[in-house]
């Protein structure tokens, strides 16, 4: 953690608030697998369970960014493995649009990540949480989350 202090854009002792959106099937399953192997993820990463990545409307993600999150990462079943067949295909298109809306407005779409995680990929889920945490620490706080005039 020591080295993060010098990183550009980061505040003294900046601990990012991170929301990890997980679908109820593979995403949550991945976290169960991680639990079974006693793998740890950073405590500032908060899981947010949705039935399907396809059920993740942009308003949840935007709400998170506006009301306090510094980053949002989304994981669910790999394309082709969706419990509801098409949900993650839909999600992928929505996520691309969400990121591009943020980019077009200069709000940094790179604070939003999509990475597929299968039920058995506990390590991938935990790795993603750590990697995203480091990525957001590097970026520093999300300005929107601290503004009262949103």
């Amino acid at each position: 953690m020591e080295k993060n202090k010098e990183k550009k854009g980061s505040e003294e002792n900046f601990t990012p608030r991170i929301v990890y959106a997980l679908c109820a099937w593979c995403g949550t399953g991945g976290s169960e697998t991680a639990g079974a192997y006693w793998l740890k993820y950073p405590e500032n990463v908060r899981p947010f369970r949705v039935m399907c990545t396809g059920a993740l409307d942009a308003s949840y993600v935007l709400r998170a960014f506006i009301e306090g999150a510094d980053g949002v990462v989304v994981s669910g079943c790999h394309p082709g493995d969706c419990h509801y067949n098409l949900g993650n295909f839909r999600a992928r298109r929505r996520l691309a649009v969400m990121k591009e809306v943020l980019n077009a407005l200069g709000l940094d779409g790179d604070r939003l990540w999509l990475r597929w995680v299968a039920h058995g990929e506990g390590k991938k889920l935990v790795d993603t949480a750590w990697e995203f945490d480091a990525h957001i620490r590097e970026k520093g706080p999300n300005a929107l989350s601290r503004r009262w005039d949103t």
Binding site: W38, L39, K40, K123, K124, V126, D127, T128, W130
Partner: peptide, 11 residues
């Protein structure tokens, strides 16, 4: 995703 990521202390 690159498998051998170094971010995860538990790995």
């Amino acid at each position: 995703y690159i498998q051998s990521t170094t971010h995860c202390p538990s790995s």
